[in-house]
Write a protein that binds this DNA or RNA. Structure first.
Lengths: 338, 338
DNA sequence: ATCCGTTCCGCAAACGATTGCGGTGACGTT
DNA sequence: AACGTCACCGCAATCGTTTGCGGAACGGAT
């Protein structure tokens, strides 16, 4: 008992006119008499007529939908980005389809394919941790479908992007600790195929260099979640290799480190300073509150969507790309104050 | 330079056959010779043909899209629900359009209208805090469009729903404190037009009653976010009306209360026990870790979507509705242990 | 030579809406 | 009486795909 949605034909039939007349009447076309318009509009609202967006999309070859591929929605940063995307899209009369890759390449690929099948007008992507092959994204560009990356970009793909200055922010975060006299600063890094992780590590290294500190490889570990951070800290403790500062690639890692240190009798920030990245909802809530880099997710979503909409609406085959770099804000809280 | 997407006609033209033949060839229809099928499939994959989902939707009168209306995506609970929804929908070959109401009625209404215009196959809704008028939702039911509520339901609307047993969980949470000998337990409540807020308050009251404690109206305040909780606690302190336990309608409120208490020299849980609701990402991370009710968001998303898909696929005009009640799990952590 | 059965394919309608173009009737003008 | 003008409206094609039906071509049987 579905498909009972009212169409333009139903109105036409009831009024004894043709569908074209109804269509024109609804759009206020001058060819239609006031009387007819009145009748049509009356009946339309009485029957709660709603134009079928599908038919319009097919006709107009545009869907007014933008597709988003995001690693995981449960992260505060990403959901903030989505809020920004939604707000801008909504105001411009666009809808948003959100797909999660769950950090899996296969899922990202199939997400992309369904978005293409849906003929979305444009696509926003933040690539998964697994993604090292970018064929699918090249294909989008080759098909001239508007595409904008945010946060996690695909190197080599000719598309616009919005990122934050990871290198600079990581530098700042690390310098903040070295300037307080810390000498043995550890880094909990993310997968290095992601540009953001790579750049954060580079920023960290540069900060050490500028502070005349030789990086200690034993203090640089791959750890980008709570559990890995916990293991890494325990390892530090077992080997007696305790740092006096930790710069983590994200907040949850920083918190994992902090909690574990505290559990084993080390105090933060006295014994070990801790700085995270992304400034999620947690940061202000831990004890001590976590220093972190505010990544401006909401703003990033807004800018990315504005850039995408510009591409969509211009629609010209103008293939110039633009990269917007936002500056992260280091927010110093209790976890790194002395 | 858009619209360069390959269609069935392009393939037909290049091969000198009709579009119908191509269509049938792609579907393996027995009427088509092996040779033709081979040629078609070859060319299709060479041209990277992707069926136009729009045209299919129009033809089949189904979109394989389900629409979701959610208050705010940035809350851990809601984003967990979305993950559950996405996973089930994805496995069933459905896409998901997510709309945020931002807790505004107007936005919820216009979200619903765009979903209807898109002719989604079904809708999942958790109503906004502002929503007290349910006409728009009645309309959906009247049009026989599959609809399932989750968490925040619309009373009086004949639709299936998945909720948790707020009354029971709130009861448990409160009893847990009274059984520890607490006598002056405050409640930080949400807007009472939301059934969840209402039921949580009722559960709290019932627990007091069963513990032979007369509810103290001065200890029941409307506060459902960090800031309001802060103000409420400050007010308690100024009036010297300090409770020995707080049951909050959600975690962020509980944390606001806890933080403020600590800041003013009260210790949690010794002076005041605190229990939240929803068990977000925060709970385990605060100091002390927050006791809370695990609301099973992911599971709720899964169940709601399964119920919706059943409705969609049965498609029969079977208008029986079902309400699934999940049991929340009280998780006792440091904030309420003695 | 006629008929039948296969095999393979195309025509055209349909989904809901838009739109260029043509058509109809009522008037006014000469 | 013949024609032009105007207001108003419908036909049909179109978007991409599916699908019922009909039909051509061929071989084999009668």
């Amino acid at each position: 008992m579905k498909g009972n949605q009212v169409t333009i034909k139903d109105i036409a039939k009831q009024l004894g006119v043709s569908p074209s007349t109804v269509s024109r009447a609804l759009q206020g076309h001058p060819d239609i008499s006031e009387e007819t318009k009145r009748q049509v509009n009356e009946l339309a609202s009485k029957l709660k007529y709603q134009p079928n967006a599908i038919a319009l999309s097919l006709k107009h070859k545009r869907t007014r939908i933008i597709g988003v591929i995001i690693p995981e929605i449960v992260h505060f940063f990403f959901s903030s980005v989505i809020s920004g995307i939604e707000d801008v899209a909504y105001d411009a009369g666009f809808n948003v389809i959100i797909c999660q890759s769950n950090e899996k390449f296969d899922r990202e690929l199939s997400n992309l394919n369904t978005l293409l099948a849906q003929r979305v007008d444009g696509i926003l992507v933040s690539i998964s941790k697994e993604t090292t092959d970018f064929q699918h994204l090249h294909r989008v560009v080759a098909q001239n479908i508007p595409l904008v990356f945010f946060d996690r970009i695909a190197p080599g793909v000719q598309a616009s992007s919005v990122i934050i200055d990871d290198h600079y922010s990581a530098y700042q975060a690390t310098r903040h600790m070295t300037e307080a006299g810390r000498k043995r600063i550890a880094h909990f890094a993310g997968p290095q195929n992601l540009s953001i992780s790579h750049n954060r590590k580079e920023g960290y290294l540069k900060a050490l260099q500028d502070s005349q500190i030789d990086p200690d490889p034993s203090l640089i570990v791959e750890a980008d979640n709570f559990e890995k951070a916990r293991m890494a800290v325990i390892n530090f403790i077992h080997t007696g290799n305790i740092p006096d500062g930790i710069f983590a690639v994200n907040d949850i890692t920083a918190i994992g480190a902090m909690k574990t240190l505290q559990k084993h009798g080390y105090s933060v920030p006295e014994d070990v300073a801790v700085v995270g990245f992304s400034d999620g909802r947690f940061s202000a809530i831990t004890e001590p509150p976590l220093s972190s880099v505010d990544q401006h997710g909401y703003e990033m979503g807004i800018i990315a969507t504005e850039m995408l909409l510009k591409q969509i609406l211009e629609d010209a085959g103008n293939n110039s790309t633009e990269t917007r770099v936002l500056r992260g804000d280091l927010i110093i809280r209790g976890s790194s104050k002395i």
